[in-house]
Design a binder for these strands. Structure first.
Lengths: 207, 207
DNA sequence: TGTACATCAGTGAACGCGCGTTCACTGATGTAC
DNA sequence: TGTACATCAGTGAACGCGCGTTCACTGATGTAC
C-alpha cells in the first residue's frame, strides 16, 4: 500500500490536464473524456479507473485547492494584522493574488464554474467562499480590527470582500499590466467598505 | 421589404431557444447547432442562414438586451433620485432586479459568459457593464448625489456597485426565498460603500 | 396590370468524424499462509 | 522463504450515435420594366 497522500500518477495527470484545459477554455463544460486522456497521454479508458464523471474530477480538484488556500490565507492575514494592522488589507490582498497567480488554472476554472452548469460544483465553490468568509471574520473579530461593528455586520463585510476579490481574480490574471492598479482598487474597496460599515454603526442611520 | 426591426421568425426562434438552453445549462459553450435547431423546430441548416457561428448569435442577443436595459435603468434611476433621493439606492436595486427576473435566461447566460470561453463575448459583456457604469456615474453627478466625492471616485464606486449587482443577479434568480434579504444586502452594500467613499474624501486618510 | 427575375427563409439527404462507453485483457505490486 | 492469489492502474479494439457542415433544392415575397 502506498502512502495515501500520493495519487496514482495517471489520476494526477488527468486532474492536471483537466485544470489546464479548463483554464484555456474557461470551463469544464466542454471538456471531453477522450480529449482529457489524450492531453494526459493515457488511454481514454483510464479515466473510468479513477472517476465516474467529469464532475467528480472537478470536485476533487476544488477540494485540493481549498485545502491549500485556506490555511495560507489564515496564516498571512494573522501575520499581517498583528504586525502592521493598518496595512492588513493591502498585505492580505497581495498574499491572495500571489496565490491566485500560482494556481492560475484552478482559479480560471473555479471562476467559470461559479456560474457554470453543475449545481454541485457551484455549491462547492460557494461553500469554499463561505468558509473563507467565516475564517476571515473570526480573525477580524479576534484581532479587534472592527471593534465598533457587530459580528453579523463583520460577516457581511467579509463576505462582500471575499466575493469581490474572487471575481477580481479574473482581471488580475488576464491583465498583467493592470495588476498594480487592481491591487490599489481592491485595497480602496476594502477601506471604503469597512469605513462605511464602521461609520453607520456609530451613528443612527436616518434612512 | 419588411420593417427592419422585425427579425425573421426562424432567427428569433433560434435566439430564444439559445437563451433558454444557455440558461438551463449555464453557458453557450455546450450548445450544439443541431440541438438549437431542434429546440427551435427548424432544420439544422437554417442556423447558417442567419449566423456564421454560435458566438455571432450570442453577441447579437447581448446587444438586444443591453439596448433594453440601459434606457430602463436611466429612466428608473432618474425618477427615483429626483423624487426620493434617500431611497434611490433601494429603488434602483428594485428596478434592476425586476428587469433581471424578466430577462432571467439572458442574465444567466451573460453571467456564465462573463467568465466564459469566448474572449469576444467576455469583452462585450464588460463593455455593457462599463457603459452602464458611466451612465450611472453621469446621473449621480448631475443629480449631485455625492457632491463631496470627485468624479473619478464616483466612477469607482459606481463600477463596484454595477459589478456587485450583476454578480448578485445569479443568487437573486436562484433563491426566490432570499430575494428580500438580497435586496437589503444590496442596499446596505451601496450605502456603506458610498458612506465610506464620502467619509474618506472629507478627512485626510492617514493610511 | 402583368410578367420575368432576384432574393431570401427554410428544407432534406448525405458525408465523414470524434465521441462516450463497454469488454476482455496485461502486468505490476501487495498479501496470506 | 516461497508460492498462490487478489488488487489495481493502465491498455486496445470495437460499438453505435449524434455532431457540424455541405450540397442542391423549394416556395414565398419583393422588384423592374
Amino acid at each position: 500500500m502506498k502512502a495515501d497522500t500520493a495519487l496514482a500518477p495517471g489520476k494526477q495527470r488527468l486532474i492536471d490536464a483537466a485544470l489546464r484545459l479548463a483554464a484555456e477554455r474557461r470551463g469544464f463544460a466542454t471538456l471531453g473524456i477522450r480529449e482529457l486522456a489524450r492531453a494526459a497521454r493515457l488511454n481514454p479508458n483510464t479515466f473510468y479507473r479513477h472517476f465516474d464523471t467529469l464532475e467528480d474530477l472537478a470536485l476533487e480538484a476544488l477540494a485540493a485547492i481549498s485545502g491549500e488556500l485556506r490555511p495560507m490565507l489564515r496564516h498571512e492575514c494573522w501575520q499581517a494584522a498583528r504586525n502592521e494592522p493598518h496595512a492588513a488589507p493591502r498585505l492580505a490582498c497581495e498574499a491572495y493574488f500571489a496565490f491566485v497567480l500560482e494556481h492560475r488554472d484552478a482559479f480560471l476554472g473555479a471562476l467559470a464554474e461559479y456560474h457554470g452548469a453543475s449545481a454541485a460544483m457551484r455549491g462547492a465553490i460557494r461553500r469554499v467562499l463561505a468558509d473563507v468568509t467565516t475564517e476571515v471574520a473570526d480573525d477580524v473579530g479576534r484581532l479587534q480590527l472592527m471593534p465598533a461593528v457587530p459580528r453579523a455586520s463583520v460577516e457581511g463585510v467579509c463576505a462582500q470582500i471575499v466575493a469581490y476579490l474572487f471575481h477580481l481574480s479574473q482581471d488580475y490574471i488576464d491583465a498583467p499590466a493592470r495588476r498594480e492598479a487592481l491591487l490599489d482598487e481592491a485595497e480602496r474597496f476594502i477601506v471604503w467598505l469597512c469605513a462605511g460599515a464602521h461609520l453607520l454603526h456609530q451613528q443612527t442611520f436616518a434612512g
